[in-house]
């Protein structure tokens, strides 16, 4: 009998853990664009460097291959622009930077984020 109860409790704990893992993954996915734009706010970066920056600032492990489709979307939406820069190694780097539209959009996003953060803080307390 005790064994059955223990199994049920373990199952519930397991479910909660899976829920939290899924939720974290959704939050990361939802904020990746926001993080990328903020990292590009003050500097231009090439793909690998950008991934390193994301890791450094947020400790988020980006599925590296997914960054490039995301950068392409940001480019078609005119938030980000890119340029190829020749290197001595013979392997050029593609540098990404914010466009004017990107800067303006990011300002709006940051304002919204601050408001949301304040609202959530009040609920969490």
């Amino acid at each position: 009998m005790y064994f059955v109860i223990l199994c049920i409790l373990l199952y519930i704990c397991q479910m909660n853990e899976t829920f939290v893992i899924n939720w974290k993954s959704q939050v990361k996915k939802g904020t990746l664009t926001f993080i990328v734009l903020n990292i590009l706010k003050n500097n231009e970066y090439y793909g690998y460097e950008l991934i390193e920056q994301i890791r450094k600032h947020t400790e988020i492990e980006v599925a590296e291959g997914t960054l490039y489709p995301l950068m392409n979307r940001l480019k078609t939406e005119n938030l980000v622009e890119s340029k190829w820069v020749e290197q001595e190694t013979g392997i050029p780097r593609k540098y990404y930077s914010l466009t004017e539209v990107g800067v303006k959009t990011l300002l709006q996003m940051n304002t919204y984020w601050t408001d949301l953060e304040n609202a959530i803080k009040k609920i969490v307390q």
């Binding site: 090439y46 793909g47 690998y48 390193e52 490039y68 190829w84 392997i91 050029p92």
Partner: peptide, 17 residues
């Protein structure tokens, strides 16, 4: 070419780091 060069660059930079 753009996609090829970008992935090539990624692999190269990652190897160097």
């Amino acid at each position: 070419d753009d996609v090829y060069m970008e992935f090539n660059s990624h692999i190269f930079e990652a190897l160097n780091h």
